[in-house]
Design a protein around this nucleic acid. Structure first.
Lengths: 205, 205
DNA sequence: GTCATCATGTAAGCCGTTACATGATTGC
DNA sequence: GCAATCATGTAACGGCTTACATGATGAC
């Protein structure tokens, strides 16, 4: 899940660890307190070793005279300086990372891999699902929909199986709120699916 | 959090591990796939060692027969089984646990301890908050309210700080849903608080 | 006789955290 | 000169999961 978030963020923009942490925190929402450096930096090192990201610029107070040639991306050269203004304030040397082509393939693989997705992972997948083709996106959403529907069915089953006075007030409030959340999540996924379907040509769906 | 759930469930009823697992799963809602035995059993052992729970009944189908020890492995096993008879239906011998007085004090301490509560822990605390006195409950709810309000404020701040076309469709959908969830959670806590206040005599609040 | 379910446990490992160590720069 | 912020990393530890080991019972 961390890998997913890091690779996803690096497709948008080259970033150094400290900044990446902020973005991850923002992405995951405040529900989950900021990610620690103790897991971020090792993760970056691991991804670099695997060839999915590479250090693009390893500091500096003194600005680089030349932009490292990265080949064919249009506007790269022009955009570089504005993307990385020399910071006037703060800090030690930064290590700025960018994603590699292997990293992009890896991101795609992580996004489209099947298997159960927990709530947090699904959120991150949604955040970067523009990297999927429409049918893959639909698949992702529909797998999620099925999971949520199961969840809700279990709620209903559990609620039905209880004689009605049995729960105390707080337990009841809790279960009701849980159910309401599940319903809301399901409705949201349904919206995503509907929007996605609307964009597909009729023959496919 | 596991401790909280186990102790809370055992105040209602004596239970063995296998059953406890089902109850915990039901309590936490299906959002979080069933707790594994690999964490439940060690937790029970730890709690027993600490004197918070005790094995009440190591099993029972009272069978008076006594088998003399034969010295062979099979004989020893047979004798063991006679000393620890098997349950009436299904399965291997059960170890039924009950909560001790120290365990009840521990539960109260866990419920009322300050410090940050994550979403899951808050849910479990609500589930068993009948063990708190009204003012302690209010404190719990209000600390949670404050956390959620901060969270929401951060959302608003983040939303305001973005030029409006900048987010892609999926990222926007994600943030909107996150915000909606936070709003819903906050409203729920507000309900809990209002209900609690209604039960307090006016002089206190 | 073998499969599903009930039942308890151990061992290995993943994923993340906190705490620690280091160091540059800005602002007071 | 000191605190705050920016910045990178390591080490120890915690909590929970998966996979494994063991075993009884009832149903088919």
């Amino acid at each position: 899940m961390l890998d997913l978030a890091i690779l996803g963020l690096l497709t948008e923009q080259e970033l150094h660890g400290y900044e990446l942490r902020k973005r991850v925190a923002e992405l995951l929402g405040s529900a989950r307190g900021a990610l620690s450096f103790g897991s971020l930096y090792p993760a970056l090192a691991r991804l670099e070793k695997a060839g999915y990201v590479k250090a693009v610029e390893a500091n500096t107070r003194s600005r680089p005279a030349t932009v490292p040639s990265s080949g064919s991306l249009k506007g790269e050269l022009a955009a570089f300086r504005t993307r990385h203004p020399i910071p006037k304030r703060g800090g030690r040397a930064r290590k700025v990372y960018g994603i590699t082509e292997a990293g992009e393939r890896r991101l795609h693989a992580l996004l489209s891999e099947p298997g159960p997705v927990d709530d947090r992972t699904f959120a991150v997948k949604v955040a970067f699902c523009r990297h999927l083709v429409p049918t893959e996106r639909l698949e992702l959403f529909e797998r999620r929909r099925a999971d949520l529907a199961d969840r809700l069915a279990e709620h209903r089953r559990a609620d039905a199986g209880r004689r009605d006075g049995r729960l105390d007030r707080y337990l009841r409030a809790l279960r009701e709120h849980d159910t309401a959340s599940a319903v809301s999540d399901l409705a949201w996924v349904d919206e995503l699916i509907a929007a996605e379907r609307a964009d597909l040509p009729e023959e496919i769906r």
